[in-house]
Amino acid sequence: MLQAASHAATARKCTKRTKTPMKALVKTEQDFYKGKIAAAQFFFNRELPKVAAQFNLLASLDRTTLDMQDAWF
Rank of each mutant, 00 (worst) to 15 (best):
R46T: 12
S60W: 03
N45H: 03
K19D: 11
F73Y: 10
M68Q: 14
K34V: 08
C14A: 03
D62T: 09
F73G: 09
C14Q: 09
K16C: 02
D67F: 07
M1P: 05
Q30E: 09
Q69F: 06
A39V: 01
W72R: 07
Q3P: 02
V26L: 08
T28W: 11
F42L: 05
K50L: 15
N45C: 03
V26A: 07
H7V: 04
M22A: 09
A38I: 00
L57M: 11
A40H: 12
L2G: 10
A39G: 08
W72T: 03
K50W: 00
N45R: 11
W72H: 13
T64F: 11
A5Q: 10
K19L: 14
T65H: 07
R12P: 00
T15I: 07
F55M: 10
R63C: 04
R46Y: 08
A9D: 08
A59F: 12
A38S: 10
N45L: 08
A4H: 00
A9N: 03
K23N: 14
R46I: 03
T20F: 07
L57S: 09
R46S: 11
L48C: 00
F55H: 02
K16D: 14
R63P: 04
A39W: 01
Q41V: 04
T18V: 15
A9E: 10
D67G: 02
A39H: 04
A24C: 04
R12G: 11
A71I: 06
L58I: 02
K16N: 15
D67L: 14
L66R: 06
T10W: 04
Q30V: 12
T64N: 14
A4F: 05
P49R: 11
R17W: 06
K34C: 03
Q30M: 09
K19C: 13
A8W: 02
A53R: 12
K19Y: 05
L48S: 04
L57V: 04
Q54R: 03
G35F: 00
F44D: 08
L58H: 10
D62H: 05
K23S: 15
A4Q: 05
K34A: 12
F42M: 03
L58Y: 13
T20W: 06
A71G: 09
A11V: 04
T65Y: 08
M22Y: 05
R17P: 03
L61G: 00
F44G: 01
K27T: 14
T65G: 02
A53D: 11
A38G: 03
L58C: 03
A40F: 02
S6W: 09
W72S: 15
L25K: 07
L57I: 05
G35H: 04
K23V: 12
S60V: 02
A8Q: 12
Q54S: 04
K50H: 08
F44C: 01
Q3T: 07
M1C: 00
Q30H: 02
I37Y: 06
Q69A: 11
M1H: 10
L66Y: 12
A53P: 00
M68E: 15
T28L: 08
D62L: 06
D70M: 03
T15S: 14
S6E: 09
R46M: 06
K13E: 07
T20K: 15
Q69W: 01
A9T: 01
Q3Y: 11
A71N: 09
N56E: 14
C14I: 00
A59D: 10
R12S: 13
K23Y: 05
V26P: 13
T65Q: 13
F42H: 13
S6Q: 13
R63L: 09
Q54Y: 08
F73L: 11
K27L: 05
